[in-house]
């Protein structure tokens, strides 16, 4: 769906994006993570032909970008950073203006498509009030409606849940899941780990312009080979499993063991009460923190 090779963008002396080989497959729910200033937005802007690459190639749906951007862009629905709208016009008029501005938006189906998109993002009841009176969350939903207007095959969303409350975030995630199930590839850029962990199946992590990780979420969160045991008889369990307990904090033991079920049987056989037992998985946060250096918006004295 999206393939880049050695994609590089230099701004003066800084490399904003440095040799990125992105690989987003059709049907993916791809999450691009990275600290602020790691080059996510520049990368997204290059995919959308807003910013031109210094070196490297981009292919979207098999077509070179930006050379064939006019063929590719009509199939993409996108939101880049904050949503943009004409503040003095109503939400519907805004959608209608953007729809009429480019190709692929038939005039006859326009009203129906606008109504459907507004319905999807939960704004079906908006009236003629101008957008400048909207709350941040409403603007975000309106921006999303604009991206959905022509049923795109690829959604590129930069921080789509910005300004939404927890319920709104949940609604938007459900909407994206629904669209993905219907065949839309979703490319999401975010610095919210939880957001990506809950929705995405594939993750890319950027740090200082480089793509340092690109893998399936399940692979990244592979079991660590340790098992977490919660037991009120921690003392005795420690004695029983002597040598295999890596650490103990209160009633929780971290045990080096391959099979949680077998360990449970051992413990119960040793007459130890088990309150909880589960294989330890790496969290996405650990993976990301391990792969990235300090925040780019942090300025330390050297």
């Amino acid at each position: 769906m999206i393939t880049t090779h050695g994609l590089t963008r230099r701004f003066g002396r800084t490399l904003a994006v440095d040799g990125v080989d992105l690989d987003v497959r059709a049907g993916d729910r791809y999450g691009l993570l990275g600290p602020n200033g790691s080059g996510k937005t520049t990368l997204v802007r290059m995919l959308l032909s807003l910013v031109y690459a210094t070196a490297g190639t981009i292919e979207i749906m098999g077509k070179p970008v930006p050379r064939k951007a006019h063929e590719v862009l009509p199939l993409i629905g996108a939101m880049v950073e904050s949503p943009g709208a004409y503040g003095h016009l109503s939400g519907r008029t805004n959608l209608s203006i953007f729809d009429a501005a480019g190709p692929g938006g038939g005039r006859r189906t326009r009203k129906a498509r606008i109504d459907e998109a507004l319905e999807r993002v939960g704004l079906s009841g908006i009236d003629g009030r101008p957008v400048k009176t909207y709350s941040l969350g409403m603007r975000q939903r309106l921006g999303l409606a604009g991206a959905l207007l022509r049923s795109p095959t690829l959604l590129i969303l930069d921080e789509p849940t910005n300004g939404l409350d927890p319920r709104g975030i949940r609604e938007i995630r459900d909407l994206m899941t629904e669209l993905n199930a219907a065949g839309t590839t979703v490319f999401l850029s975010s610095h919210l780990l939880g957001e990506v962990e809950l929705f995405c199946t594939r993750v890319g992590v950027m740090d200082r312009g480089r793509l340092v990780i690109q893998d399936d979420l399940d692979t990244l969160r592979a079991p660590t080979g340790r098992i977490l045991v919660d037991t009120p008889d921690a003392e005795r369990a420690h004695a029983l499993l002597d040598g295999r307990v890596e650490s103990r904090v209160g009633d929780r033991l971290v045990v080096r063991h391959a099979d949680a079920a077998a360990l449970n049987a051992t413990l119960v056989g040793g007459d130890i009460r088990v309150a909880g037992i589960a294989p330890q998985q790496r969290t996405l946060e650990e993976v990301v923190l391990e792969a990235t250096t300090s925040s780019a918006d942090r300025v330390d004295a050297t």
Binding site: R45, L48, S49, L50, A69, H70, L73, P74, I76, A78, V80, E81, S82, P83, G84, A85, Y86, G87, F98, A101, G102, P103, G146
Partner: peptide, 14 residues
């Protein structure tokens, strides 16, 4: 400034 330019260009408007 209003943030609408990028949305016009990715619409796409040449």
């Amino acid at each position: 400034t209003g943030g609408t330019l990028r949305y016009l260009l990715i619409r796409p408007v040449g």
